[in-house]
Amino acid sequence: MSGADRIFRALFVFYLAGFAFYLFAPLVIMSAASFNESRFPTVIPWQGTTLDWFRAMWADRAMWEALWTSAVVAFFVVVISIPAGTAAALVLTTLHARARSFAYALMVSPLLTPGVVIGIATLILWRQVGVGGGLLLIVIAQASFIICYVMLMVVARLQRFDRTQEEAALGLGASRFMVFRRVLLPFLRPALLASAGLAVLQSFENYNTTLFVRGFETPLTVFIATKVRTGLTPAVNALALIMIAVTVIGAVAYELARRRRLRDNRAADLPH
């Protein structure tokens, strides 16, 4: 190894460390701040370690209401986007080349549309029929782009589906519906579960779109953002820490499950 290489390598390790620091410092500092007695969330100066902010957060009715609102929204978003995304994927894969690329462009367009625009457009459309911002519009606006994610995940899974399984089932006398229920749907299950998880996360974390259609509702992200601007205390950090913990545990569990499934799939896929 030449000297130049060694310097280059050292620089890169330094860069890598800096990157990791950049990645985690905000999360760590934010989490740490929730244990500081200071009224404003910070780590410097450290005024003493306390769990008071967790208690304060726990006692905050508005926080619980926001959480509940987010949960309700996420639930309905999943209920809408899983069937719609699956349907979109199936329709897409049965289309012929030209119609397919057109449909594809249309179907992924919400992903390329800024979130605020989606919120605004939904708000404007529903105003025509006298529906203002609120739970309904939050669900609809979020679903309109979360469906894309479901669609993409299902399409990816469908690419590995062996269509002769469907024919085999039909040939054994199954109705089209039974073929769908017993053969295709079980095959899609892992993708559907994964996209349901993703949909919940996306729904919980969405801010830009929700902001415009929320009406008088306050989902969790809006609650937090409002707190930051109007009365930030480390109670918000306490909430953040818990949310981070939940998402990190969820993400790790998801990733582990995905790896295990990959292995299982490899075992279950019949060699041809």
Partner: peptide, 20 residues
């Protein structure tokens, strides 16, 4: 349709249902 005929087919790839 194939589900209305008194035939059963065995495919080149067998097409067993891998998840059952």
């Amino acid at each position: 349709g194939p589900n209305q005929r008194p035939t059963a087919m065995i495919f080149q790839s067998l097409a067993l249902f891998p998840l059952m």
